[in-house]
Simulated scan of single mutants.
Amino acid sequence: MNPAQKVRRSPEGGYARGDETRQRIIEAAIQLFGEHGFEGASTREIAACAGVNAPALQYYFENKEGVYRACVEALADDAWRTFGPAIEHARAVVRENAATEVLIDAFIRIQEAMADGAFAKASKPGRRMFFAREQAGYEPESATQILACRIRQPLNEASAALVARICGLASDDPVTQIRTFSLHGQLVVFHLAHRSTLSVLGWKSMDAEKAEQLKSTVRDQTRILLEHWSRERDARHVKDAKGAKAASKPPRSRKQARGDDDGN
């Protein structure tokens, strides 16, 4: 081998380093976007936090909005790894017309995945604030579109389908939608109002034991409500069946009516 000739590194090594740098930029950007918002975080600050020079951001993402979009895509990928199995399971039990108890378990499984995702990230305030700012409508609309298409829509549709079957209503019925959002809201409030949660409960942090206490309480409340709504559904079906049976009886003639009166 000619000693003057440089030994080229394998493409795999180059790709790995590039991916690592890109991921480091994304993690730094999520933290700074969460702390300062899209307008408040500068590409120079993101580059410094990631330990790269400013041109590296342009090389990987073109501009600040490209960095932000990459952050949202990365968060969506992470969320789907958490929620995806529970959503697919929910779709399967709805297709199979499973028993009520199985439907309830499937809904609680979605909530468990939501809780695991939320409480696991409670120690990462940048991520929590990133989502809070996006939910408040302060950030680029592209973020909302990506998250809606990849995570929120599948999650909401699967959840509403379960609640609809349990309640005996249509998925797009306003009551179904309100019930679905209110059930999930039990967890969302602890995630977004993290500081208030710790203050009210007198906790310094959200460790695994405290997270399990929250999950257990919400799980019990959710099961009680879903079982109650399923009993309402069954009672409504019984009432409708009785009404249909009564309506199917032939009308009584005047002669039959007079005979009943004479017998009395």
Results as ranks from 00 to 15, higher is better:
A47F: 07
P55M: 03
A90I: 03
G37Y: 13
R24P: 05
A86L: 01
S42F: 02
I25K: 08
R44V: 05
E27D: 15
V72W: 06
T43M: 13
T21H: 12
C71V: 07
E45D: 15
V67Y: 12
A92P: 02
F61E: 02
G37A: 02
R91F: 02
A79S: 10
A76K: 06
G34S: 09
Y60C: 03
L57D: 04
A48Q: 15
F38M: 01
D78H: 12
Y60Q: 09
R69I: 12
D78A: 05
A47K: 09
T82L: 00
G66H: 15
H89T: 09
A48E: 15
W80H: 05
V72M: 11
I87N: 01
T82D: 04
A76M: 03
L75N: 05
A28N: 11
E35W: 10
A47S: 10
W80R: 07
A50L: 10
G84E: 07
G66Y: 15
I46W: 05
V67S: 07
A54P: 08
I26D: 00
G84H: 08
R44Q: 10
A28M: 08
G34M: 07
Q23I: 02
Y59Q: 12
I46E: 03
I25Q: 06
E65S: 03
R22G: 05
E73N: 12
V67E: 11
T82S: 03
G66Q: 14
E65C: 00
H89S: 05
